[in-house]
Amino acid sequence: MSKPTVGIFGLTGCAGDQLVILNCEDQLLDLVSLIDIRDFLMASSENNQDCQLDLALVEGAVLSNRDAETLRAIRKRSKLLVALGTCAVWGGVAAMNRGADRDADRDALLEEVYGDIGRGYDSTPAQALHEVVPVDFNITGCPIEKEHFLAAVASLLNGDLPLYPEYPVCTECRMRENNCLLIERGLLCCGPITVGGCDARCPDLRVPCVGCRGPAGDANAGSLVAVMEEMGFSRPQLAARLRTFAPGGVA
């Protein structure tokens, strides 16, 4: 059986998820012996930009018409398209204030940021991949977990879709028997409404969860916000934190 062809792409983002792939040092040789990476601009100077792909992994959010066109072209040549990382899955940091972003006069906004030359820049309000093309599945995280990427490849090679936790960060945080930063220290922790899979890495280091993996499947943000308001946090404060990684908040 010929090796599945794979492309790894970055739209607008920090390239951190592609870096996670390159950081799979112990598995890289196994990976390239199992899959045929044809198109990976960040890692390779010889890329085939037209071939059919069995699997496309796409990082970053869609922030320009060019991003959208690139993504549509990737979709067209790929059997499976995977959104890689929180930006691709949810819109990420760029989408944190999308409502205001959309309402605003785009040219005025561009001028404010870039000065005169900004007018006419190709820039659109941030979108997650699924808002532009159909996405087959998501690997969320900022950045993604290395193990989730490897598990995805391992499952896909067998023909199975990978499974990821749907429960929130709290679940894993409790499994690790951490002190609760929200309840015991009154910190603004997004653990109860953020999807797990990170093994509660931040709360384990006594840093409250900022929601970087995006919302849990059944997140009840309204109830959490109500309790946090009772704790003395203001609505704008809460909105700012909850909206950092997903438009409309971790909700």
């Binding site: 929130p168 709290c170 409790r174 499994m175 109860p192 849990a216 997140a219 009840n220 109830s223 959490l224």
Partner: peptide
């Protein structure tokens, strides 16, 4: 049901 966060904390502990 309106209040519960489905965070699973109660079950874990």
């Amino acid at each position: 049901g309106e209040k519960c966060l489905s965070c699973g904390s109660c079950s874990m502990v």
